[in-house]
Computed example of a mutant assay.
Amino acid sequence: MVFYLSWFTLTFLLLALTRNVSRINLIIVFILLTLVYGGRNLIGVDDLTYISSFNNANSGGLVYGMERSFIVISKFLGDMGLNFRALFFFYALVSFTFMYLSYKELCQNKYEWIVAILGFIVFAFVPTITLMRQFAAAAILTYAFLFILKKKNILALIFIAFASVFHLGSVICFMFLPFFLIRIKVRTKIILPIICLAIGYFGIFNNLLNLIDSYIPNKYIGYLNSSTVPQIGLLHLILITIYILQFLLPILYKTKKQISDTTDFLERAQMLYFSVYFITLSSGWTSRMSIYFILFVPFIFKTFITRFKLEKDKQMLYLICYGAYFLLFIYQIIVNNNFNILL
Score class of each variant (00 low, 15 high):
S52Q: 13
Y64M: 05
D79M: 07
A156N: 10
L181M: 15
P250W: 02
K151Y: 00
T255V: 12
I294R: 01
P217S: 10
N225T: 10
F247K: 05
E267I: 03
A136I: 01
T280V: 01
C173Q: 14
K257G: 04
L224A: 09
F339R: 03
I216M: 13
Q332V: 00
S227L: 03
R23V: 12
S214R: 10
L101K: 11
Y325V: 04
V229Q: 13
T263Q: 15
P298C: 03
M132R: 07
L235A: 02
R23C: 06
A136S: 15
V115D: 10
A57L: 05
N338Y: 04
L149E: 10
R40P: 15
L157D: 06
I31W: 12
E105A: 07
L32Q: 14
F84G: 02
F89P: 10
A92G: 10
V297Y: 08
L211G: 08
A163T: 02
Y277M: 14
W285A: 09
L245Y: 05
G233N: 15
D79N: 15
I184D: 14
M1Q: 08
K257W: 01
L14N: 12
G222I: 06
Y143M: 00
F274E: 14
L209H: 08
G61A: 02
G65A: 11
I232R: 07
G39F: 09
V276P: 13
L42V: 13
L249V: 05
L13W: 11
K309W: 03
L141G: 00
N336Q: 07
G65D: 15
L177I: 12
T142H: 00
F296R: 00
V94G: 06
I305F: 02
K151V: 02
G44N: 11
S52P: 04
L295M: 11
S290P: 10
L192S: 09
P217W: 11
M1N: 08
F89N: 07
Y253D: 10
T228Q: 14
V36S: 11
N225S: 13
F293L: 13
K150C: 02
Q258H: 06
I160M: 00
A16D: 14
S287E: 15
S226T: 12
A136D: 08
I51G: 02
L48K: 09
F125K: 01
L13I: 09
F120D: 13
Y273R: 07
M66I: 02
I242G: 06
P230L: 05
F339T: 05
L342K: 02
T188N: 13
L87D: 10
L319H: 03
D261H: 09
V36W: 11
V335R: 04
K75L: 05
F293V: 01
I199E: 13
Q134D: 09
Y143L: 01
L295V: 05
L14A: 09
F90A: 01
L168R: 07
I121F: 06
I158R: 01
N336I: 03
Y325M: 01
A163W: 09
F3G: 05
D79V: 00
V229G: 02
